[in-house]
Design a protein around this nucleic acid. Structure first.
Length: 1043
RNA sequence: GGGCGUUUAGCUCAGUUGGCUAGAGCAUCUCGUUUACACCGAGAGGGUCGGGGGUUCGAGUCCCUCAACGCCCA
């Protein structure tokens, strides 16, 4: 072992060198590992698995920092801590990225490649990004149990998914049915609602006439319907009118009147005009609307043009009497609202579209046309038939797929659903009765509301990347086929209830004749097979059953994450030890998508909630309040921040900004790679392929660089100066420790003698006690910003600025030195422990350096320091050290020092010039100040000449008055009278302001009566302030006389 | 359209149950290299708390309202 010389410690912490070394030391030492056999109480956190779509950004860095801080504290507190890492296969997102690349690079679609080859490519992508993501997490310092890293599509998770699916299938909580889904015709898949965004585009509103069949006298020959999508009329199965047009119009009118009451002046006229129009419409239209209603009730039918299909006129509340002609065409298979109408009115649903977005055989001569072509043809032909009434221009909301950026078509498809009634209720109960708590509690409501809807969860996705649904299906042409097939399956070798489960799905079309016409089977037989029964699967296939091609929604596997990662359904020691987990830390946008589903799946599969606490952390925004994302160009890579400021600074900065109510706003800067100059990103420059540095004028490239020329430029970093404060703090801590080690030479371990404790020692112990208690409870309550603020203030402005400064004098004194060294070692030791969860690297580095100089430390009992800080004990100081009297005593000294320094500054006295000063105060105060008097010299280069009631102001002096004392600084030959007059005048004004405010309050009889105690306090304060003002006025007089 | 949140110093944020002159970091200005640290030290200037109204002896804090911004759900 080389000898350790503290003089060799550099004045900067070389984080780039240290981080990897320290991380490897932790990892190889097994410190990250949770031990299922441990006697210690478990504490478990599962990571929200990042998507393997791409690299991590600062939002992940925040998320990881918070989890790591918590798990590190718990580990130090003696828990058997486990932070379970992993990544998510992210179904559609990942497949879309790889498909897009395939298209761009090779001009191929997934169909050119085939399922197997595409999935293979996605695995390659996954491996590449997973490595990168896990690397990023490690760089941040995440103390996950990396050996347990899981992936939502790996074998362990796959078994859990299959087991869950089988269980739900068997309980009939999974079923197949037809539903209207968001269909992406480009990716040929359904997309979930949250993957759909609306775009406002200019469109048209066509009004068509549908002839009435056999109108009675007085009835119109046709009704008028309006649509923004004419081609859908091919699938119309009804026209609806409102059942109570009168009441409906009344309701609209009363809503408008409500709105009018709330309207600002500007809006009022608009609303009034709407009301007038409504009244006029009522006058004109109501009889016609009522007539239509009566026709519908009477069973009048319409002839759907072009298709020449008879369709009914029905009554339904979806029709809006306040709009158009009051009639609405119903296309159940291609509009969500119409779909609901069809269910209410028992209407047929005609699917007119193929999977690729072209029209199908149901449309007859239109089959094969695209939607766009069909629209043109339909309009032209209706026009030719003189059935086109009018066309209006109108802005329409067009739903688009977030993934492919193409329009969404509502589409009726076979889908697997999870029945949510019971499952949702179990998750609602868990939060209501407090088995799961959500912090901040305001997020509970969204969770409960969402679950309360109990909408069934469509889980099939027409993708290739994911868990393929483990169901084999065969259609039974007739009723007679069902039993034999069932019997055959039941008699297959290996059939057991634990291996396979059967569901019979009768055809929705109950009319046998119609089924025959549409070539529909009588029923479908579904067999769900457990994992590990390949032979049985084969046997099914030999019977002609085909496996479902769809895969499961990615959230299905994520929902199992807390128990699937621990090996469920096997009864593993891990599951027994670490489930339920302790805390989940995540962001608010996936509370319903993920958190709620984990709760209900955890309850279903394990009978216990998956976690006790959920902490929802803020979101990261840029300086403009916009969410960061790579696609906007304002995204910051955590690695850029780490390479510039270090992982500890990134972490500290993140935690420091993590307050309860606010999102984190982080102004984003470019950093010039040529001159390191950094400058703000603007909405303009953040999307450019290259940017010129305003400092050195040289250009650098950005993530948008595409041309070879641009790519040749050096790439500029994207960072935020928000982390400077944290970096400075790291440096401060580093140097304070360096100083400590430089002064710990000759340290001899021994218990700290209480009778040797000085006032400042006891102050430090009191502070340490309070700070460690506060930091502990802040972190337990997820108040990260409060915890870091407390640590920052304490470490910098108390430990460094006062305690360490004061120790300098004591180190110089051979006699006092050993005690001072023990105190310093002890308090630094404690500070390092407290800071470790937030700043693990630098604290570990200092800890190990410190151990080389003082391997044994302690208070009354001396112990050999733990080899690593990562699993050293969390500080638990003796609460009796907390001492208000000592802290007040110290505050007196700090107040006097502050005044001294201010006088020196305002008098422009150079640091090297020593001044003399006196303090006039009571004998009691003097006793309190005396032990600290010696430090005025070091801290303000000032010598305390006299202290006590008899102190007097020298002939030429500057004066400062506090509640407890008057400070006279002897400025013989130095005084700047004008400056002193100015300062005193300002001081006087302040006091006058304060006095008059107090007087005003005391003159308020009601206040004095209501709060006598507070009034007394103010009265005292007033007396003091008045006496101080008198002193100031006197000094001011004297000064003015000298002018 | 509904819900939640935010608006405090040039910037990023604190501000407990309403109560004495509203705090911090960065930035700015002044002074300063004394045995850790210029990624440092000392000090100063700077805000009437988004607008309006109300409750109260007293409002950044409670209530109403308007406005802007952000997120979630329709």
């Amino acid at each position: 072992m080389t000898t350790f010389n503290p003089h060799d410690i550099p004045s900067r912490f070389d984080f780039a060198e240290a981080q990897n070394r320290i991380f490897q030391m932790w990892e190889s030492g097994g410190y990250f590992e949770g031990d299922p056999q441990s006697e210690k109480p478990p504490y478990t956190v599962v990571i929200p698995p990042p998507n393997v779509t791409g690299a991590l950004h600062l939002g992940h860095a925040l998320n990881s920092t918070l989890q790591d801080t918590l798990i590190r504290m718990k580990r130090m507190q003696g828990f058997n801590a486990l932070w379970m890492p992993g990544t998510d296969h992210a179904g559609i997102a990942t497949q879309a990225v790889v498909e897009r690349r395939l298209k761009e690079d090779e001009g191929k679609t997934r169909h050119d490649l085939g399922r197997e080859a595409l999935v293979e490519r996605i695995w390659k992508w996954k491996d590449q990004y997973e490595t990168r993501i896990l690397g990023q997490l490690k760089q941040i310092g995440s103390s996950c149990d990396w050996k347990r890293t899981r992936f939502t599509l790996d074998d362990v998770c796959a078994r859990a998914v299959r087991h869950t699916f089988f269980d739900l299938f068997q309980k009939s909580l999974i079923y197949r049915g037809k539903r209207l889904v968001n269909w992406d015709t480009y990716l040929q898949t359904t997309v979930s609602d949250d993957e759909v965004f609306s775009k406002t585009v200019k469109g048209q509103f066509w009004h068509f006439k549908y002839p009435v069949i056999d109108p009675k006298p007085g009835e119109p020959d046709y009704v008028i319907v309006a649509t923004t999508r004419p081609e859908t009329m091919l699938g119309d199965t009804a026209v609806a009118v409102h059942p109570e047009p009168d009441k409906a119009l009344d309701r609209v009118a009363s809503e408008l009147r409500e709105k009018l009451k709330k309207s600002s002046e500007a809006e009022k006229s608009v609303v009034e005009a709407q009301l007038d129009a409504l009244a006029a419409r009522r006058e004109l239209m109501l009889p016609k609307l009522e007539q239509l209603r009566d026709m519908a009730s009477d069973g009048r039918r319409l002839m759907l043009p072009l298709m020449n299909r008879e369709i009914p006129l029905v009554c339904d509340v979806w029709a809006k009497p306040e709009l158009g002609a009051g009639c609405v065409k119903i296309t159940p298979a291609h509009d969500p609202n119409d779909y609901e109408v069809a269910k209410r009115c028992d209407l047929p649903m005609i699917n007119i579209m193929n999977r690729d977005g072209t029209l199908n055989v149901e449309t007859g001569v239109y089959a094969g046309l695209t939607m766009k072509q069909a629209r043109k043809k339909v309009v032209e032909e209706l026009d030719a038939l003189q059935l086109l009434e009018t066309v209006e221009d109108r802005e329409i909301e067009l739903p688009q797929s977030d993934r492919s950026k193409t329009p969404i078509e509502p589409y009726l498809a076979d889908q697997w659903f999870v029945s949510m009634g019971k499952l949702s209720q179990s998750a609602i109960d868990a939060v209501v009765d407090g088995r799961v708590s959500i912090t901040p509690s305001r997020y509970e409501r969204g969770y409960l509301d969402w679950l309360g809807e109990k909408r069934d969860w469509p889980v099939s996705r027409q993708l290739w990347w994911g868990h393929q649904i483990p169901v084999w299906t065969k259609a039974c042409e007739s009723e007679g086929d069902v039993q034999p097939l069932t019997d055959t399956i039941l008699s297959l070798p290996g059939f057991e209830k634990t291996v396979a489960a059967i569901q019979l799905e009768p055809c929705e079309e109950t009319d046998a004749a119609k089924r025959a016409k549409l070539e529909l089977p009588f029923a479908s037989l579904h067999v769900c097979v457990q994992s590990g029964c390949e032979d049985f699967e084969k046997a099914l296939e030999e019977l002609g059953l085909k496996r479902e091609e769809d895969v499961l929604d990615t959230w299905f596997s994520s929902a199992l994450w807390p128990h699937s990662t621990l090996g469920w359904p096997e009864k593993t020691p891990e599951l027994a030890c670490f489930y339920p987990t302790s805390t989940l830390i995540t962001s608010r946008d996936i509370i319903s998508l993920w958190v709620a589903r984990m709760v209900l799946m955890g309850l279903n599969n394990c009978g216990e909630v998956p976690f006790e606490k959920v902490y929802i952390h803020p979101k990261i925004q840029d300086g403009f309040g916009e969410t960061m994302s790579k696609s906007k160009g304002n995204g910051i890579d955590p690695l850029d921040v780490i390479s510039k400021f270090g992982a500890d600074a990134l972490r500290f900065g993140m935690a420091h900004l993590c307050t309860e109510t606010q999102d984190v706003r982080l102004p984003v800067q470019f950093e010039c790679p040529h001159c390191q100059h950094s400058f703000d990103q603007t909405k303009k420059n953040r999307v450019l392929p290259k940017v010129a540095c305003p400092g050195c004028k040289k250009e650098f490239s950005t993530q948008w660089a595409e041309t070879e020329e641009d790519k040749r430029l050096e790439k500029g970093g994207v960072i935020s100066e928000r982390f400077e404060t944290a970096r400075n703090f790291v440096n401060k801590l580093w140097n304070a420790s360096r100083f400590a080690m430089l002064n710990l030479e000759g340290y001899v371990a021994a218990p700290i003698a209480e009778d040797e404790l000085t006032v400042e020692d006891r102050w430090m112990l009191s502070r340490l006690t309070t700070v460690s208690r506060n930091v502990t409870s802040y972190l337990e309550d997820f108040k990260y910003a409060d915890a870091t603020r407390e640590l920052y203030e304490f470490a910098w402005h108390q430990f460094c600025s006062f305690y360490v400064e004061m120790l300098k004098d004591r180190f110089a004194d051979e006699e006092k030195r050993p005690h001072a060294q023990r105190m310093l070692a002890y308090s630094l030791d404690c500070l390092l422990r407290l800071l470790h969860p937030v700043m693990p690297f630098i604290t570990e580095e200092i800890w190990q350096n410190l151990a080389r100089i003082c391997p044994q430390r302690g208070w009354d009992e001396i112990e050999t320091a733990n080899p690593c800080l990562i699993n050293a004990a969390w500080p638990q100081l003796n609460p009796t050290w907390q001492d208000d009297a000592i802290e007040n005593q110290f505050a007196l000294y700090q107040a006097a020092l502050g005044d001294l320094r201010e006088i020196r500054n305002s008098q422009n006295i150079g640091n090297k010039k020593k001044v003399k000063f006196s303090i006039k105060c009571t004998a009691d105060i003097a006793d309190l100040l005396r032990p600290l008097g010696v430090y005025f010299s070091r801290m303000a280069n000032s010598e305390l000449i006299e202290l006590g009631p008899s102190a007097e102001a020298p002939e030429t002096s500057a004066t400062r008055t506090t509640a407890d004392m008057e400070i006279y600084v002897d400025l013989d030959g130095l005084i700047d009278i004008e400056a002193e007059v100015k300062r005193l005048e300002k001081e006087k004004a302040n006091f006058e302001k304060s006095i008059s405010s107090k007087q005003r309050q005391l003159a308020n009889e009601k206040f004095v009566a209501a709060k006598p105690d507070l009034a007394d306090e103010i009265r005292n304060g007033l007396r003091q302030a008045e006496s101080q003002l008198a002193t100031i006025a006197e000094s001011l007089q004297k000064m003015i006389a000298k002018l």
